[in-house]
Design a protein around this nucleic acid. Structure first.
Lengths: 162, 162
DNA sequence: CTAAGTGCAAAAAGTTTGCATTCCG
DNA sequence: CGGAATGCAAACTTTTTGCACTTAG
């Protein structure tokens, strides 16, 4: 149904990005992980590229720069990034895993997903977050993460149909 | 990580359930679909059983009553229910599709999912829905459906850990 | 009768993993 | 050197589909 996913421009916080890079470096040091050419390429591409990329997307971009990179390497690198809190894995119901920079780099946000063109728009609404905490409190629930996604048609697609 | 998913008691609206059954019947009539023993068994089991069951869960229950039912039949019947708006497919990030009666049968709700014991609690918060519509309006977005899920630890599991 | 439904097994689609080889530290 | 990382291909998991046989209407 959704041909592909287009990307919304997102304003990044430069300092937060640096922080994420530092976090990755620290994590790798602590775990005795190594810095390889492939890993550097994949990580850089991820940081520079569009948000909400799938592993395939990233693989394509990475291969544009280095033909021989394998799917598994991208897969494992993304897992690594998620593991140390530098990237967040997202699933929007199309069966694919997508990755975005962790919330540190931008304000915490949720998503509007257009079912017709695949565009993903990010939004923030602190009042929803607050109410959400209220709800959790009512159930004695300790929230670690959440997802709030709205599916429907974006402004552009509404025009097209009419 | 999550061993299994336990079920929360949910109060159903009897009249709404009847409405859903009627909707299914109407849909099948319109499409010229047939009422088979398997289909009746699966549908009844689904209506009577716990919410948020996976296809496997339902298959197990159904097979307790009729040994020979195949996975594909349950799969296709659930698809049918979802198609005519009698059931909703949900994914809570463990890679499995779960099904619940459509919102008509209960008030619209969202979910709290305990990452440690798998319990799924449903909640309603109209004020969140309202704010959500505000957000959509800001983006000229037409919302067709949404999911709002909070992941964390339920009250019980918090006690266990401490 | 005949088009729809069933059960099985095979195909897809994505994600993970085992392993021999390569390479960082 | 020795343990990590890589690339490939094979294994998995869950969902979907093709097909020959059965059956509702």
């Amino acid at each position: 149904m959704v041909a592909s996913v287009r990307e919304e421009a997102v304003t990044l916080d430069r300092a937060a990005v640096d922080r994420l890079r530092a976090r990755l470096q620290a994590y790798m040091a602590k775990k005795g992980l190594r810095s390889t050419a492939q890993r550097r390429l994949i990580v850089d591409t991820f940081f520079e590229g569009a948000s909400h990329m799938t592993i395939e997307d990233l693989l394509t971009e990475v291969r544009a720069r280095d033909k021989g990179i394998g799917y598994a390497t991208v897969y494992r690198t993304l897992k690594l990034l998620a593991e140390c809190g530098v990237a967040s894995e997202r699933r929007f119901g199309d069966g694919l895993s997508r990755y975005e920079l962790a919330d540190d780099a931008k304000a915490h946000h949720d998503h509007l997903i257009c079912s017709s063109c695949g565009t993903i728009v990010e939004f923030e609404e602190p009042r929803i977050e607050a109410l959400q905490e209220d709800v959790a409190r009512r159930y004695g629930f300790h929230v670690i993460s959440h997802k709030h996604e709205m599916y429907g048609t974006c402004a552009d697609c509404q025009k097209k149909v009419s």
